[in-house]
Design a protein around this nucleic acid. Structure first.
Length: 358
DNA sequence: AATCCGGGGTT
DNA sequence: AACCCAGGATT
């Protein structure tokens, strides 16, 4: 038989990975997560939405305690919609990507106003904080809209199944097309929510980034990367730039009643709208440290915190003050803070405690 | 298309 | 220490 009778695609994917096989695997191996409903039943859209926002670039284990605290405090989206911004931002403190929390508030109020979530992808996509991925995820999981949400897991699984060797992010379109092909199978179309979550779970527990467990994979037979011994090498990714270092100084102030001096950051940008320990700007070379008020400043060392695109080294000074200066808000030491500011505050308070323990 | 935007789990 | 995570908004 002439080789030309056989299309190259035949060698790339001998047989499409079976949606039915994956769903059968999912029935046995699915993760039990607080925002999930039982197999075959649709979960609460509010729970799905809240979990999806929290899960953006955040691992499941980190999200779970935050999710529980939110659901306990805000049992319905209406409870969330009428809450004060500060309380919501406080509950979000430490989770990161604070624009998510600001969009969460706007989205909750829009949904409460409308009387419920839109049930179309375009309607979901129009809400604050909901992009193409999250719209597809909520649509599939909460409303059984037949669509494949393409997150990092699905990108990885799909790139391997079809042995897509082009590097990300250039390969995004090709991967999305291939993922849609997986979802076009009848079994996936009939259970879009389970199919999406099955892909997530396969990527999270079997088709993992570093050393995938191909021996127990329900899709091994249909996996072109496995056939070529490429599984652990895909998807390829473009190299990232090195992370620069920025430096600054913060001043931890404690008054006689034990209150700490904090400052509200501008509403947008890095740590937008969150509280911070007052200090200098953050530059490549440390700006001159100008204390916010006169005090006997003690050295509390340096804390290091890694952000997505730079590393921050903060020199921490600490002092007791008779009265907090103007423009500074007095807050108790356990006030919810972004992690970098929590680190700085703890470093300062540790030095005070060691000098004059209570 | 690039860049900005946290924090931490995993290896 | 590097990589990556149920990405979105902005420029």
């Amino acid at each position: 038989m002439p080789a030309s009778w056989v299309s190259p695609a035949f060698f790339v994917s001998p047989s499409l990975p079976s949606a039915e096989n994956l769903l059968r695997w999912y029935h046995v191996h699915r993760r039990i997560l607080p925002w999930r409903a039982g197999p075959g039943s649709l979960p609460d859209p509010y729970h799905v939405w809240l979990s999806e926002i929290m899960l953006q670039q955040t691992v499941v284990a980190t999200v779970i305690p935050y999710f529980h605290r939110f659901i306990e405090r805000f049992p319905t989206i209406s409870d969330l919609a009428v809450a004060a911004d500060d309380e919501i931002l406080g509950l979000w403190a430490g989770l990161g990507y604070y624009a998510r929390a600001r969009n969460l508030i706007r989205c909750a109020r829009a949904v409460a106003e409308a009387g419920g979530f839109p049930v179309t992808l375009d309607g979901l996509r129009a809400l604050p904080g909901i992009g193409p991925y999250t719209a597809a995820a909520i649509g599939a999981i909460a409303f059984d809209i037949p669509v494949v949400p393409v997150d990092g897991n699905v990108e990885r699984v799909t790139a391997r199944m079809f042995a897509i060797e082009e590097a990300l992010p250039a390969a995004k379109d090709a991967i999305a097309v291939a993922a849609a092909r997986l979802g076009a199978q009848a079994a996936a179309q009939s259970r879009p929510g389970d199919f999406a979550q099955a892909l997530f779970d396969l990527g999270a527990t079997v088709c993992t980034p570093r050393s995938p467990s191909c021996m127990v994979c329900p899709w091994r037979d249909g996996c072109a990367a496995h056939a070529r011994g490429l599984s652990a090498d895909l998807p390829r990714k473009a190299k990232r730039a090195a992370r620069p270092v920025r430096r600054g100084t913060v001043f931890v102030m404690q008054d006689r009643s034990g209150m700490i001096g904090l400052r509200r950051r501008p509403p947008r940008g890095l740590l937008g709208g969150m509280l911070e320990v007052p200090g200098t700007d953050w530059e490549a070379t440390a700006p001159p440290p100008v204390p916010p008020c006169a005090a006997h400043w003690l050295d509390a060392g340096t804390i290091v915190h890694v952000f997505t695109h730079f590393e921050l080294r903060l020199t921490v000074k600490v002092g007791r003050v008779a009265a907090l200066p103007g423009g500074i808000v007095a807050a108790p030491p356990d006030t919810p803070l972004p992690t970098v500011m929590r680190k700085a505050l703890e470093a300062g308070l540790a030095v005070l405690d060691e000098r004059s323990p209570k």
